[in-house]
Simulated scan of single mutants.
Amino acid sequence: MKQAMVILNPSSGNEAANDYKAEIVEVVSDKGYNVTVKETKKQDDATAFAEEAVNEGYDYVVGAGGDGTINEVITGLAKYDNQPLFSFVPFGTVNDFARAIGIPLKPKAAIAWLKEADTEQRVDIGKVNDRYFVNVVALGAVAEATYDVGVEQKTRLGPLAYYIEGAKTLAENKIYPLTFKVGGETIEEEAFLVIIGMTNSIAGFERIATDAKLDDGHMHVFIVKKLAGFDIMTVLPSVLAGEFKDHEKVHYIKTNELTIESTQSLHTNIDGDEGDDLPLHLTVLPKHIRLLKK
Score class of each variant (00 low, 15 high):
24 I>T: 06
25 V>H: 00
25 V>N: 01
25 V>M: 02
28 V>C: 05
28 V>Q: 05
29 S>P: 06
30 D>R: 14
31 K>E: 13
32 G>E: 08
34 N>H: 15
39 E>D: 00
41 K>E: 15
41 K>R: 14
44 D>C: 12
50 A>T: 07
54 V>W: 09
56 E>F: 10
56 E>N: 14
57 G>M: 03
58 Y>F: 15
62 V>K: 08
63 G>P: 04
64 A>N: 04
64 A>S: 10
65 G>K: 09
65 G>C: 09
65 G>L: 12
67 D>T: 09
68 G>N: 10
69 T>D: 03
69 T>Y: 08
70 I>Q: 00
71 N>F: 04
71 N>K: 10
73 V>T: 04
74 I>M: 01
76 G>K: 03
76 G>H: 05
76 G>Q: 03
79 K>H: 12
79 K>L: 12
85 L>D: 01
86 F>R: 12
90 P>Y: 03
91 F>E: 11
92 G>C: 11
94 V>H: 03
95 N>Y: 10
96 D>H: 04
96 D>R: 02
97 F>A: 00
101 I>T: 02
101 I>Q: 01
105 L>M: 05
109 A>S: 13
109 A>I: 07
110 A>N: 08
113 W>E: 08
114 L>A: 05
117 A>V: 14
118 D>Y: 08
119 T>N: 15
120 E>I: 14
120 E>A: 08
121 Q>I: 13
121 Q>Y: 09
121 Q>N: 13
123 V>Y: 01
129 N>T: 01
132 Y>W: 09
132 Y>V: 02
132 Y>I: 05
134 V>G: 08
135 N>F: 07
139 L>K: 02
139 L>H: 02
140 G>K: 10
142 V>R: 09
142 V>G: 07
142 V>K: 06
148 D>R: 13
154 K>I: 04
156 R>Y: 13
156 R>Q: 15
158 G>D: 05
159 P>R: 02
162 Y>V: 06
163 Y>E: 06
